[in-house]
Design a protein around this nucleic acid. Structure first.
Lengths: 415, 415
DNA sequence: CCTCTTTAATTCGAGGCTCGAAAAAAATAG
DNA sequence: CTATTTTTTTCGAGCCTCGAATTAAAGAGG
């Protein structure tokens, strides 16, 4: 609701449709009366909206799985999102791996495919071709009652321009400025969202634990690289131009260790897995780091750090300092919001926690009283997947199935 | 427009009233036809809204200062905001100084008062008493045709909680947690906004140069302390809890110089005027800094830095590094947005620019191509004043004069 | 087995809103 | 003094939400 936007009467219906769809998505199975209670809309309005949604095939009455029987009056009839009204696809692009999944409109997985690709040698066309091949396969093999493909969400490890659905730069491939959005959109005729995997993680967290990850929070991914997904004012913050929130490339030590981005002193150059490896393998911090660190090696180092006080432990301490320094700056800029640490770095939180806390708290000061609000999620992949799925589904809920006039809604042309 | 908000038919009118008021505020004198062109609303709607606004006394036809005559058809009649429908008050609270001003609804200054107060010795009650005294004076002496006081905006040098209209901490006074909002609101019976002066500067910049300071930008105040006002997605970013955006207290050097906030290594501890003075006067960086640095001393140091290469020049270099380091982190988090440097630090930009650029650009990297977008505004006070004024007036435009049903609008009860 | 009670959902009219088309208003041109 | 031109208002159609009344569909009880 901006100051330079004009409001029309049907915007009201649009917004209230969104509201109904959002409550149905959260609660799964709801009677009209429940929707009235949840939303605050009047029964008449809920009736009008739900009959329209049913007529358009977006939601449906679910006779069998009834809510509560054995009550006195007329029984409530449960409503639920129609799984078959649409299919969405998610693509996770990581180092040497592409993971594509199909979901129905209710969020149930339809089909899934993993594919190993040597991303470091792949040109942009190779990547796009791989992805399309996988999607074609998945779409071909899905059951006949599945809905039309209506949205694709990509979570990529790299810097993205969300507005233009483009991957600007990524450590996993030499090509830059890859317009996945354009390519996929042209081929499949649907809208495509391309965002950093951290944005997807944030989206997932908000869905999983809305109590804790409410209006403002950050998801920081500590793995091969270091990224951040930010939620501000209840909306994903995708930066002004690029997808931004490059937590890993905030400055930690001026003219410090060499980062994979080519600059010096970034947080990532101290706290990522390649930074840990570089340090514990006796390399200089100005040396070019390894491009791929396998999990076994990383865990080996972590275990050694846990058992004895040596170079390994020192490396994780350094990492803790770097992350703490970034957190303190983050907290200075946008308040001490809840933070989720995700990925391999979250599995070694015990090794970095002390230093991190020291740096964040500094020494007293007006903002030091509140304690850290940090939670750890060692496995990032389920979160990225779920985040992509929710991105697509919410897009359908709010953008595609929202318009007030049903006449031009894509469902009519679908299936 | 949030996903959990319910829309009602009169919200449409509310939003379109806002739109009309916003265009009138920006352009000053506009015919109904002009408003149609500017907003995209239909002539019928504009007619309906303007007649309502005129009936409520919020806007008025301005017969004399007509727009364009000498044209063929029926002449346009100019509309303008009614100055007399409301008065707003602004209060700027800085070290040893309180500045209070009254404006009419059109934004014209009615009365102004400066007051020297020893803020460093003042308890919260003293400050509140001083402010009330000034406001009482100003309100008493204003012309009889002036509108009722309807809003107060305070810009304070310190950390604020905008939601609770409270000053949490300030370097200018020993008391903390001062609820200026509650006190003034109770006394004058109007809404009160309390924000950091940097937020006010950002508000002013957006008003002064909307082309350049559009959706996303930052205003960084370099004077006694270092603060920042952020605009994100076209809205002032007031942080999650406190007013946040404490650019000056981002971490520059872990365990570094003592900052006035009590912690160590903040940017402010290197780049504020007291940091410059501390360094050039041969003190240790861990020493408690001066509480007040007068402008003459500061200029003296700057001049010496310009004329010869000594400790002074080094101090400004250090300051440039600190600011650059913060900017790089800021750019990492929220993209390279336009930045305004405001205050005494902006007057010595020539002394800090080189180092600042060096640190920001690092050494190449994927985000280094774009050049810095920085403008300087040596005098912060006019900006703070205008920002306070705009905060109050926009509050009236969007919150008070916006509600669709005119019956309960405060104007009816006013005067 | 039939009626009463209770709860759910729909229908209908009132009162908003915006908009397009037509009408009214207020000037200049000839 | 009339025709033309431009601005502004008026009026009806078609949205929207909401409250009240109505209809629908069960269980409870004699």
């Amino acid at each position: 609701m901006f100051l330079d936007e004009i409001a029309r009467p049907d915007d009201v219906r649009r917004q209230n449709r969104r509201l109904v769809l959002a409550t149905l998505r959260r609660h799964g199975l709801l009677s009209r009366t429940d929707i009235v209670a949840q939303t605050g809309l009047s029964p008449s309005t809920v009736s009008a909206i739900t009959t329209a949604l049913i007529a358009e095939g977006i939601i449906a009455e679910s006779r069998d799985g009834d809510i509560i029987a054995n009550r006195r009056g007329r029984p409530q009839v449960a409503l639920t999102l129609s799984p078959a009204v649409a299919t969405v696809a998610t693509v996770e692009l990581a180092l040497n791996l592409v993971h594509a999944v199909l979901f129905d409109y209710k969020g149930q997985m339809i089909a899934e495919e993993f594919h190993r690709v040597s991303t470091l040698d792949a040109k942009s066309d190779d990547l796009i071709r791989s992805i399309c091949l996988m999607l074609d396969n998945l779409l071909e093999s899905r059951p006949p009652n599945a809905g039309r493909l209506m949205h694709i969400s990509m979570g990529v490890q790299g810097v993205t321009d969300a507005a233009r659905a483009t991957m600007l730069w990524s450590p996993i491939t030499p090509d830059s400025n890859i317009s996945f959005g354009d390519a996929l959109s042209k081929r499949y005729g649907v809208a495509v969202a391309v965002a950093n995997d951290c944005n997807m993680i944030a989206e997932a967290l908000r869905w999983i634990d809305p109590e804790h990850y409410a209006e403002d929070f950050a998801a920081i991914l500590l793995s091969h690289g270091i990224g951040m997904g930010l939620y501000l004012k209840g909306k994903p913050f995708l930066g002004a131009h690029s997808s931004a929130a490059e937590f890993g490339h905030m400055l930690h030590v001026p003219n410090g260790a060499l980062c994979r981005c080519g600059r010096h002193g970034c947080i990532e150059a101290y706290a990522s897995d390649y930074a840990i490896l570089r340090r514990t393998s006796g390399q200089d911090e100005k040396d070019q780091p390894a491009q791929d660190v396998d999990a076994a090696t990383y865990n080996e180092i972590a275990n050694r750090a846990r058992t004895r006080d040596g170079e390994e432990r020192a490396a994780f301490r350094k990492a803790g300092q770097a992350i703490g320094s970034g957190l303190r700056s983050l907290y200075s800029l946008i308040d001490p919001i809840p933070v989720a640490l995700v990925g391999s770095g979250a599995a070694v939180f015990d090794l970095i926690e002390d230093e991190l806390r020291d740096v964040v708290s500094g020494t007293s000061g007006w903002g030091a009283a509140q304690e850290l609000n940090i939670r750890c999620y060692p496995d990032e992949h389920p979160l990225i997947l779920q985040g992509c799925m929710m991105t697509s589904l919410l897009h359908l809920d709010t953008q595609v199935f929202a318009p007030g006039d049903a006449s031009d809604t894509p469902i009519k042309r679908a299936i």
